[in-house]
Design a protein around this nucleic acid. Structure first.
Lengths: 222, 222
DNA sequence: CCGTATTTAGCATTGTCGTGCCAAATTATC
DNA sequence: GATAATTTGGCACGACAATGCTAAATACGG
């Protein structure tokens, strides 16, 4: 049943951490394709080309497997996005138009504009949703959420610091608003892809950034 | 939510449609509390105070039960929200400030500001997510989505028609943007309620509407 | 080359799901 | 009141999940 495509030539010695990551990959693939309820031990093992017993050798139980999958997702998303962010946040040079363009590119990392980002969006959302009714996942899902929240906030702070945004803009609120926009937009695009082609996503993001730059902030009055 | 306080005195004759709605109530309650994976026949029957056999008498199988629950959710959400909308969309009178206030109230119907709206948000989101990997739910989830999309769009169109929004605003794009914002904001508030108190939700919504009113639209340039 | 630890594979158990089927209880019709 | 229809309750079966336990296959240290 289990399908070890390895030939007999490959040594049986295995780096356990790498193995765990391979299994996490399988979890991600199954969840992205068939949903969380399909991520059973047997399906994950099949996806990874292993036997159930092998998977169980590296994870004590199903719960630990799920937790690891969430953390691994967070690690990868964080790594990819922060690497992208540092190029923007550290370099203070470039014209304003250039900075604007790069900011837009950074925030576009949150949108499902290609298969990689689509799967990441899907997985983030799936695990975040699952965490609501699975206490063991909550803190890890929150950590993932916080990481991205912080990135958005720093991006806006940086833009404001370099004069790309009005000085009286309430960055706290705008961060929440931008993050909500990105999340909602990405989510709808993932759930109903027919209705939200990548062009539309980019257009909406661009429009939002435009409105941030152009809008004079009004203190909370009517 | 669903509470049939009937005692044994009530005759055994039952309106089947009402019974189906009561069972749907139970589905909603279980899903909102414990997630979709908990909406098994036995748990739903328990929640409704019925035997499994009774539930099965009104629904041929589990799938039909889920579909009915989605449609019933759509019916209720649509009913409540459109009732609210008509008061705004039909009446052309009132000052601009008054219209603005009522528009904000209407859109606040999309946010989880009280238990009822919180559960509705949760259920909409849960079923929409599930529909991705359950073809039988897809069209019903899309219908629910479309209904709310349309409401948002009409609201913005109405606001533009009465001069509450700039005439050159691209209502198509703004509808998508506003809807994404409402969805993303509501979702985060539902998943991580500690971080998103109702006041913050209102503030973000108000800020977004402010920016719509105040922003001159720039044609898609840099 | 041998013994030990690691890795892989699988069996058996237990629990829970949906569902086919049937019987009891209750109501409606005559 | 007797009979048919509706409604309710539940048993039994098969599928499949997670998991405890065991044994084979493989790699490594001596």
């Amino acid at each position: 049943m289990a399908w070890s495509c390895y030939k007999d030539l490959v040594p049986k010695i295995v780096d356990p951490e790498q193995r765990r990551r391979v299994v996490a990959d399988a979890v991600h693939a199954v969840v992205a394709r068939d949903g969380l309820q399909a991520a059973t031990l047997s399906q994950v093992a099949d996806e990874a080309g292993l036997a159930v017993g092998s998977v169980r050798h590296y994870f004590t139980d199903h719960e630990e497997l799920m937790i690891f999958a969430v953390r691994e997702l967070g690690r990868r998303v964080g790594e990819r996005v922060w690497a992208h962010a540092e190029r923007l946040l550290s370099d203070s040079d470039g014209s304003r138009a250039d900075r604007r363009r790069r900011t837009e590119e950074l925030l576009a990392e949150f949108l499902p504009l290609d298969d990689l980002r689509r799967d990441e969006m899907l997985l983030r959302h799936t695990f975040a949703t699952a965490a609501r009714t699975r206490p063991s996942l909550l803190i890890h899902a929150e950590a993932l959420q916080s990481t991205l929240d912080e990135l958005v906030q720093r991006t806006l702070q940086g833009a404001q610091a370099t004069g790309g945004l009005p000085a009286d803009l309430d960055v706290e609120v705008e961060s929440v608003r931008l993050r909500a926009l990105l999340d909602g937009l990405g989510l709808q695009a993932v759930l109903f892809p027919r209705r939200f082609p990548p062009d539309l996503l980019r257009q909406v993001l661009r429009r939002h950034l435009d409105s941030l730059v152009a809008t004079p902030h009004r203190a909370a009055g009517l």
